[in-house]
Design a binder for these strands. Structure first.
Lengths: 193, 193
DNA sequence: ACTCTCCCTTAATCTACATTAACAATTCCC
DNA sequence: GGGAATTGTTAATGTAGATTAAGGGAGAGT
């Protein structure tokens, strides 16, 4: 099993000893998820945190009319979780599924707790991940408060340059908070034909 | 100086020894902020994290037309910060000011770093705070994606029951993402007169 | 090679919420 | 205590983006 991608991610924040690496990787589960297959369904409790090494996941919520609204994409190198459900064991509001065939590692919450109690370095790693996520959500919220649809689209292009090419337009529309019809119109009327 | 409110907050997550308490409180700065006075101005670097003991702060961003959009209120017992600016030393996008005369403690980022390096317990505390904040922002985002203005208002009432009584309506409007005119109309047409 | 499903586009109509403006009621500060 | 600033309300008009509907094209599985 090739743990390099996830170990590289951890190494961005903390430097592990060989012992810590072995202990950490012993908790990792490998999983392959097919296109449209769920990693988490809303209503279930989220018991794991996932790290994508290949492919792409998305988390999304469903409104009362059945419309899907994407909260996050997770291409390789990204973590994904319904944090409230993980912390409180409430049923998740988010669905997490695969946009294309995806490979990932996951860690179960009890294993993560044990890891952090035994080695404070993982406490530190978890803190930094959560702080970064918090900063990202703060700014996403600010963007949604003060930018219009076109500005949010430009933002998306600089945030996920790789995804903009591979993702169906309707997924981008769902992330930036407009209908696919409106995004299509927006992109085709800006350019002078 | 009465450190009880902030020590109680820490005690929700970790149990400090007397030594740790003393070390922690030695880093705390007390500050009183008058109504409308800034704790942080957008453009400046956010170098501290604040904990409110009395009164109420708000963080907000300003759009290109000068409109203010509230990200968060911080009544007593809440922390408030522009996390990206704190982490990266980029200029803050958020303004933080006082809605009414407010008392708070703050810790400077370098002191917090030292504290966390010396006592892993504060690493743990920081992780838990950040994880909770992340969970809250995830769900705020979901709410904004799938709820309409009236539903967001109801949500606000259950989230901040104390604030709904004391806060000017225009601040509530700014938080839930509508104009004060629209909120006024919404509240006065639901009730049959 | 051929369905079938998904995806993109165009266009007409619709609606939740914004904007502007004007006025009354509060609250604050000197 | 009084003038100024802030707040809440109503109503007319404006608009970004939603909804509905319909047609065409491209990929994927058999």
């Amino acid at each position: 099993m090739d743990y390099a991608p996830i170990l590289n991610n951890v190494a961005k924040y903390v430097t592990l000893t060989e012992e810590e690496e072995i202990y950490f990787t012993s908790f990792l589960h490998y999983k392959k998820v097919k296109r449209k297959q769920y990693l988490l369904e809303a209503g279930d409790v989220n018991t794991k945190i996932a790290f994508v090494t290949n492919g792409c996941l998305r988390s999304y919520a469903v409104d009362k009319n059945g419309g899907e609204h994407v909260l996050q994409f997770a291409p390789p190198g990204w973590w994904i979780v319904d944090m409230r459900s993980l912390l409180t064991h409430e049923p998740a509001r988010l669905n997490i599924d695969a946009i294309e065939e995806t490979e990932l590692f996951y860690i179960l919450k009890p294993d993560l707790d044990a890891l952090q109690l035994k080695y404070p370095k993982f406490e530190r790693f978890g803190r930094m991940l959560a702080e970064n996520a918090m900063a990202t959500y703060q700014h996403r919220q600010i963007d949604n408060m003060i930018l219009n649809a076109m500005e949010r689209y430009s933002n998306f292009c600089t945030l996920y340059p790789s995804l903009i090419l591979s993702l169906p337009q309707k997924q981008v529309a769902s992330y930036i908070g407009v209908t696919p019809e409106f995004l299509s119109k927006m992109l085709n009327t800006v350019v002078i034909k």
